[in-house]
Simulated scan of single mutants.
Amino acid sequence: MNDMSAPFPPRRARINDVTINLTHGAGGKAMRDLIQDVFVGAFGQPDAAAMEDQARVPLSALARHGDRLAFTTDTYVVDPLFFPGGDIGTLAVAGTVNDLAVSGARPLYLSCGVVLEEGLPVETLRRVAESMRRTAEAAGVRIVTGDTKVVERGSADKLFINTAGIGVIPAGIEISSARARPGDAVIVSGHLGDHGAAILIARKQLALEADIPSDCRPLNGLIDAMLAACPDIRCLRDATRGGVATVLNEFAQDSGVAIRIREETLPLRETVKGACEILGLDPLYLANEGKLVAVVPADAAERVIEAMRAHPDGRDAAVVGCIAERPRGAVILETGFGGERIVDMLVGEQLPRIC
């Protein structure tokens, strides 16, 4: 699967196989037809350049957006492949877009590499490719190149996706986990733990009659609104594996500061709270796929919150804490009972296969 930004030859292949087989990864006609039908059909336009071995991007198209390139990659192995609020394709695009956007970059181009297990229904692959197309369109990015591999039955778990992305950071934007300063405000963009809870329920590991959709979504539009309100955002990260607790610990350690958060200000759904109480989980460690954590100067907090709440992806944004000088490298939760506890970085694995 090669340059899918550009189109494939006029003959439109259409595979008739019901399931993926090893010939779809053998490099011949079956593989070419799969790529043209499922992937180029979803991501591209009809032209021969779609089947080249690389995407070709004019440097002028990058330079007009800023002066630095942002480049990221991630691999997605969620179980189940489809869950309330999204699927592995939505995750793969949104996750990579968000990893670019939290640097202040404008995401532009993605790659898509897939590992397919022999026996995977072709219709499942079509659904995932369509989700990727819709999410990329919503984020304003293009999927321009990729690769397909097929492994024997039992050598993988249905479908793995790797996406890499490039974007451009505008001049003057300097976001880093090492820029938090005492007095700064800590902001989250909305309800925490939705994705982790949604996956638990989708696996039927939780006997709850609850409707908790995943929060999986691209956040670059929200981040654009935040930067318009405050170009001097100090730290910014999407809270995925390890949750908000892990992100805050990274900020505290990299910046050499303490972070104090208030339990009563954390936005949590009652259904997520209930799920955590049943399983003995801490929602601060639950995965999110459409929430971010930001550190901003105190005098900018109000206007950042106002800009976030005006955006559909930030309506429940809240200031949840502040940056302090000591104890350096620590995250401290002020409980609703007037006590305090240390919030450590996630140790071990709380939930398997959530992204």
Rank of each mutant, 00 (worst) to 15 (best):
G66M: 08
R64K: 14
Q350I: 14
E302D: 10
D3Q: 13
R260L: 12
R133P: 04
F43L: 14
E349D: 08
S111Y: 04
I261K: 05
R269E: 11
L34E: 10
T135A: 09
R153Y: 10
T148K: 03
N21D: 15
I201N: 10
G41F: 08
G336N: 12
G165Q: 04
R181A: 08
G321N: 04
P182D: 08
S189T: 14
G190E: 03
K29C: 08
L116P: 00
D53T: 12
I278L: 15
A48R: 12
G221K: 11
A164V: 01
G27V: 09
A178N: 12
E340A: 15
V18T: 15
E349H: 06
R237S: 13
L266D: 02
D282G: 03
S60T: 15
S5R: 13
G66Y: 07
R303G: 00
V257C: 02
C112Y: 07
A207P: 14
P312L: 02
A275Y: 00
I278V: 15
L22A: 14
P297V: 00
G44E: 05
L100K: 03
D53N: 14
R14P: 07
V320S: 02
P80S: 06
D47C: 11
Q45L: 12
Q54C: 14
R353N: 15
V57F: 07
T96Q: 01
M226L: 11
K149M: 12
S176L: 05
V141L: 02
G329I: 05
M4S: 15
V186E: 01
I35H: 11
A275T: 08
R134E: 15
L81D: 01
P231L: 05
S5V: 05
P46N: 10
Q45I: 13
R262S: 09
E340R: 14
A30Q: 12
V272R: 01
P231M: 00
V77P: 00
V293H: 03
I15Q: 12
D238L: 00
P107W: 10
L333I: 09
I342Q: 12
S103R: 12
E137C: 06
T240K: 06
G119I: 01
D3L: 09
G119D: 07
T19N: 15
S214H: 08
P352F: 07
R127I: 01
R269Y: 01
A287V: 12
A228L: 11
T246D: 08
A207H: 12
M345D: 11
R133F: 10
G290N: 02
D238H: 09
A178T: 05
A94M: 00
G321D: 02
A298Q: 07
